[in-house]
Every structure is written in structure tokens, then in C-alpha cells.
């Protein structure tokens, strides 16, 4: 079951940027791309824990600010030669509001 919760307005996230959302299990990075789509990923890079919310967003990818690994925002997979992946969470925009799936966010504490 999905339980969409409103975490704020799309305008609160800069285009080609991200904001953090705090959860009990650590931070989730919520990204907004150049074409106004939103994606939610774990805010910790699988390499050395870099905060992905601080990375440069290009196309539907983000570059980790610490050592430049590039991740797909859609799948969470590392791109190019690097290997690893970040957990992704359902996110969507409705009427200018950003919604995350509370069930899935909570589920990762159980997993």
C-alpha cells in the first residue's frame, strides 16, 4: 500500500538540485531535474558515504560531491566504470507539491 506524504513544494527544490529529508533511518535526498521531475534516493554514496544531495545534477543523474561517482536518479545504479547502487524511493509531484511514499521510507528500517 502506498501512503503518499507531502514533504513540501516543488519550488523549494532548485532546478538541477536537491534537498534533504530527515527520516529515522538517515537522510533521503530529493532531487529535482531540469525537466521538473523528482527522484528520492538514499543520501549516502555507496563509495564512502558522500552526501548525494550536494552533488551536481545533470540530465537524470547526479555526481557525488566527494569523488565524482555518477548515479542514475531513476535506478540508483552507478554509471560508467564504477559499481554500486543507492536505494531509490517512490516520489512524485502533484499540483506543485512533492510527495514521498511513507510506507517505503518506513520499510527500509525493517529491511
Amino acid at each position: 500500500m502506498t501512503n503518499w506524504i507531502d514533504i513540501g513544494s516543488l519550488d523549494d527544490i532548485p532546478r538541477r538540485g536537491a534537498r534533504k529529508v530527515k527520516t529515522v533511518m538517515g537522510c533521503v535526498a530529493v532531487f529535482r531535474t531540469g525537466d521538473d521531475r523528482v527522484f528520492a534516493l538514499d543520501n549516502a554514496c555507496p563509495h564512502k558515504g558522500g552526501p548525494l544531495a550536494e552533488g551536481i545534477v545533470h540530465g537524470h543523474s547526479v555526481t557525488c560531491p566527494l569523488h565524482n561517482w555518477v548515479f542514475s536518479l531513476e535506478t540508483g545504479m552507478a554509471q560508467g566504470a564504477d559499481e554500486g547502487s543507492v536505494a531509490t524511493f517512490p516520489a512524485r509531484v502533484e499540483a506543485g507539491r512533492v510527495l514521498l511514499d511513507a510506507e517505503r521510507l518506513a520499510a527500509r528500517s525493517a529491511a
Binding site: 529529508v21 527520516t23 530529493v30 512533492v98
Partner: peptide, 14 residues
């Protein structure tokens, strides 16, 4: 405000 988390869900879960 852009330096703060956009939302804090830790409270809700508690």
C-alpha cells in the same frame, strides 16, 4: 532555509 532539511519525518515516525 535552503540549508535546512526540506522535511523532518523522524518526528512523524515516532
Amino acid at each position: 532555509e535552503t540549508y535546512q532539511p526540506m522535511a523532518d519525518l523522524t518526528l512523524e515516525a515516532a
